[in-house]
Amino acid sequence: MLRFLITVVRRDVLLAVRRRGDWLTAQFFFVMVVSMFPLGVGPEPSMLRVIGPGVVWVSALLACLLSLGRLYADDFRDGSLEQMLLSPYPNSLLALGKALAHWIINGIPLLLIAPVLGIQFGLPAEALLILVLSLAIGTPILSLLGGIGAALTLGLRGGGVLITLLILPLYVPVLIFGAGAVEGAMSGTGSEAHLSLLGAFLVMSLLIAPWISSLALKVSVE
């Protein structure tokens, strides 16, 4: 079972490494969206400090959705998804592996880029730490919930926009707890409560999302 999970993850990571161009697109998208906000609202440092956490988090959601559209689509097109679904292991394990791979490929780079962007918005050092921490807990949730959307919209016309429509409302709690944690750190009200709620949401997503994704895959492939 564990070997199967590792194989799924290793395969996706290897494919991403072989196609670095696609992978870099999502990362640059994140950087660019974040950089547009100061241009839109003006360079006032006090204002930027207030909107910073929210801007970074919203951009992370969008960057995540951008790359999620292809989570299953390539494998669906070339027939590999069928082969994976026929494997003797439970399909929810496949969905978990896919989400995990998505997080490693797209989530972890966000964690590494985010502090740099936070500095652009004048966030203090402590807030930067919480920003990374909240992203570390929150981005796996984005991959897990997004996997459901990717499975549901498999092979549909306009799947990329559709997945945004389906999944963005479900991301609301992650956004609120994630950005709230950073604001809490900045305003001195503390961020433990936010982070633990985010953690609880992560545990719940881990338990439920792979199972629903596997059902959705079955529905979509049929």
Binding site: L15, D78, G79, S80, E82
Partner: peptide
């Protein structure tokens, strides 16, 4: 119908 072959491998 599809060969399940990855182009990059």
């Amino acid at each position: 119908h599809a060969n399940a072959i990855k182009d990059d491998l």
